[in-house]
Simulated scan of single mutants.
Amino acid sequence: MTGPPPAVAAVRVAVRRALPSAGLVLIACSGGADSLALAAALAFEGPRAGLRIGLVTVDHQLQEGSGPRAAALAAWASKSFDPVLVETVTVHAGAGPEDAARTARYGALSRVAAETGAAAVLLGHTRDDQAETVLLALARGSGPRGISGMPARRGVYARPLLDLPRAVVRAACAGLDLEPWEDPHNTDARYARSRVRELVDTLGEKVVANLANTAALVAADCAELDAQAGRFPLGPSLAVEDLAGLGPALRSRVLRRWALSLGVPGGALTRRHLDALDALVTAWKGQGPTQLPGGLPVSRRAGRIVATPVGE
Rank of each mutant, 00 (worst) to 15 (best):
T103L: 13
H60C: 04
L269G: 04
P233S: 00
E241P: 00
A174L: 09
V218W: 04
R159P: 00
H185K: 13
P144I: 00
G303K: 07
E98D: 12
T270F: 02
V240L: 15
G46P: 01
L42D: 05
A72W: 02
R197G: 06
A75D: 15
A100I: 09
E312D: 12
V84S: 06
L274T: 11
D275F: 06
G155D: 06
A95K: 14
D242P: 00
G303S: 05
L162H: 09
L277I: 03
A223Y: 06
G303F: 09
P20I: 03
L255W: 08
V298Q: 01
A7G: 08
H60V: 00
A244D: 13
L73T: 09
R271Y: 00
R253M: 08
G288S: 12
G143L: 14
F232W: 12
A192C: 03
Q287C: 09
A120C: 11
V200W: 02
E205P: 03
A118K: 14
G117M: 11
K285I: 11
Q130E: 13
V84N: 04
T126W: 02
A70P: 04
E132D: 08
D82V: 01
L211W: 01
A239V: 04
L269V: 04
S299H: 04
A307E: 10
H273F: 04
C173N: 07
A302L: 09
G94F: 01
G50L: 06
V8P: 02
D201Y: 04
V156M: 07
A28G: 14
L225A: 12
E64M: 12
V56I: 08
G46K: 07
A7S: 08
L176Y: 00
T187G: 02
V112G: 08
D82H: 11
L36S: 13
R48N: 12
L234Y: 04
D34P: 04
A108V: 08
P68D: 10
A22T: 15
P151L: 00
C173W: 03
P297D: 03
V25I: 10
A279Y: 08
L85F: 01
D128E: 13
N210V: 09
R140Q: 14
V25L: 11
P297V: 07
R195L: 11
A114Y: 03
P144S: 14
Y106A: 10
A43L: 13
H273W: 00
L161K: 06
M1Q: 05
A10V: 12
G288E: 14
N213S: 15
